[in-house]
Design a protein around this nucleic acid. Structure first.
Lengths: 218, 218
DNA sequence: ATTACTATGTTTCGAGTAA
DNA sequence: TTTACTCGAAACATAGTAA
């Protein structure tokens, strides 16, 4: 099954429609023609491929959904084989969130942990950075391969507050930490940063200012 | 199945024994405890993992064989997501092969194709380069994602001669081509280079000399 | 040539449970 | 608690074909 997708990747189906047929795919994947046919149908039903079928074969292309799945695999494998501890740099533009980040960061349940584990008392607000290039989004995904500072969730009488992972970094040279909140399915192109400083003031940032986040490797 | 290996990778089983149990792995992979147990046995029988089992769980580590399989996947996926056309550089040390490379390169059936497709008449010999670092071996594997100059195989009365792929490059600045012979399961840490020049003389190389191969991107 | 349906055979799964 | 066996059920693969 997955096998079939890898065969399609080898043919370049991640960037264009590629011409093939069920007999060819079957032999490449070590399965029968009938199975290849059925699996192509399944992949199509699961919106993992698009097809144009005619009586001489078919053209197949991977969907964005399939690429996302492959990207997950890639992200898991990269830290295994890219041993060198490279410096991760992320560039993006400052934008205004809803201001709710500051509320959470200031809560005693979190604040105590920040002071203890990150070694600084965070300014009660987060700097929202929007990533503009695929390269930066990739770099953000790589962050998770770094050693994290774990912030535990907790509960009060009203509700439960989720955990988070922090990664020491600098923003335009100023000490800070990237905050990756657990469970909330955050957009992939946004990074939240906390710091002991009010970064907008300290770095004279406005909405649209470009900042460079440099992750600390150990 | 594969799923289980990815779970183990996430736990770091590619670099050390990691402690886990069948219930935990099952829930991570969306399968029953029984299936996880059975699959671990299969993985062990297939020499993809090593285990130390006790009554409180088990320690699991991936074998080299499993890592090789994952590396294949990684190599397939990298060109998909590493879009930027990076320059591939390989460094290694010159060594003497058996001299058979020269015999083949000089055969009319190949020579004609080199002249036509690579645009030069190759010196009848190959420069063997031994790669010394993991980084260089990785870089060599990446070559295959570049556009290849295809050299077809052929037959004469006696036998069949296999095909090859060539990749335009420079060796210490001199035009050349990396030769990847088909089918022969070449060692991963050796690169063969052909050129119109006798590179050993032209570049004053001896066994053990370090050379830098720069692949041409288009 | 193709793709892909049906029917049948094979493999895989997981509940129950032993050790 | 574990791991992992047995066995009936569910999922999957392929031969034979139709279109």
């Amino acid at each position: 099954m997955e096998n079939l997708i890898y065969s399609l990747v080898k043919k370049g189906a991640h960037e264009k429609f590629v011409r093939t047929n069920t007999v060819e795919l079957a032999s490449e994947c070590g399965m029968s023609q009938q199975t290849a046919s059925r699996k192509l149908i399944e992949l199509e039903n699961n919106k993992l491929i698009e097809r144009k079928i005619d009586r001489h074969g078919q053209s197949v292309r991977l969907t964005q959904k399939a690429l996302e799945g492959l990207r997950d695999v890639y992200r898991n494998l990269r830290p295994v084989f890219e041993t060198a501890a490279k410096k991760i740099t992320i560039e993006g533009k400052v934008f205004s969130g809803l201001g709710e980040g500051g509320y959470y960061v200031g809560m005693p349940g979190y604040k105590k942990q920040f002071i203890q584990k990150l070694g600084f008392d965070p300014y009660p607000g987060t700097l929202n950075v929007k990533l503009e290039t695929e390269r930066d989004i990739e770099a953000k995904a790589q962050i998770e391969s770094l050693p994290a500072v774990r912030i535990e969730g907790f509960s009060d009488a009203k509700r439960t507050y989720g955990g988070a992972n922090c990664y020491n970094a600098t923003v335009n040279g100023v000490d800070a930490a990237v905050l990756v909140i657990e469970r909330t399915h955050h957009p992939a192109d946004v990074v939240e940063v906390i710091s002991s400083h009010f970064l907008r003031k300290r770095l004279r940032l406005n909405d649209g200012s470009t900042v460079r986040i440099l992750l600390k490797n150990e």
